[in-house]
């Protein structure tokens, strides 16, 4: 394994991802927080690459850094009167404590557990090449059912989003009844 390159990349990308994540938490502005979130997503995609998961890394960039972030920005824009300060709620203390505790627990398990049996030289030989073909085979082979249900899931998420926001019956409230529905339809199609 071309160890030094990977090791350096791992540390740099880890620092980037964690730092961006912390910035999401600390940022005082909601829109800035979204930007940091995108940065974290990108760092994560880099980490995926170090794990030889190139297809997933691309999907990560497209879906998370692309679609979902756009959705978030849209949502912020559609709620103009809501606060933009990314302020903390009443539950900041339990939130931070739970976050720290979970990180500590996972870290403890990560270093304490007996991973020797689970990692080692064998992993290095693992296919670093054509992941897409294998994934494609699995998707329409062994996991075809999940694949099909996922399509139903997306369809009904779309439908659900429209149902929730599309105001057909209350023309009195909306100046342009079609406008909200149109926006939402676009918004909901993004992830699909």
């Amino acid at each position: 394994m071309e160890s030094t390159g990977i090791v350096v990349a791992f540390w740099v990308l880890s620092a980037l991802t964690i730092g961006a994540g912390l910035a999401v938490f600390l940022s005082r502005n909601l829109v800035h927080a979204i930007m940091f979130l995108i940065l974290a997503f990108l760092g994560m995609a880099g980490l995926f690459v170090t794990l030889s998961a190139d297809f997933i890394a691309v999907a990560q960039v497209l879906i998370y850094a692309g679609a979902i972030s756009v959705l978030l920005v849209f949502a912020v824009m559609l709620t103009p009167l809501a606060s933009r300060d990314n302020a903390n709620s009443l539950y900041v203390v339990p939130g931070v404590l739970a976050g720290l505790a979970l990180a500590a627990i996972v870290g403890f398990v990560a270093f304490e557990a007996d991973w020797a049996a689970l990692s080692g030289a064998a992993a290095d030989q693992r296919a670093s090449g054509a992941t897409i073909e294998v994934i494609g085979d699995l998707l329409i082979g062994r996991y075809v059912l999940a694949f099909e249900i996922a399509s139903i899931l997306l369809l009904f998420a779309l439908l659900g989003a429209i149902v929730l926001v599309h105001e057909r019956t209350e023309p009195a409230v909306e100046v342009e009844p079609g406008a909200a529905g149109g926006e939402l339809a676009r918004e909901s199609r993004e992830p699909a």
């Binding site: 709620s89 009443l90 539950y91 339990p94 939130g95 739970a98 505790a101 979970l102 627990i105």
Partner: peptide, 13 residues
């Protein structure tokens, strides 16, 4: 809602 998720995560921890 965050009271519930806090309780939830405290439970997990």
């Amino acid at each position: 809602m965050q009271a519930y998720t806090s309780l939830y995560l405290v439970g997990v921890v």
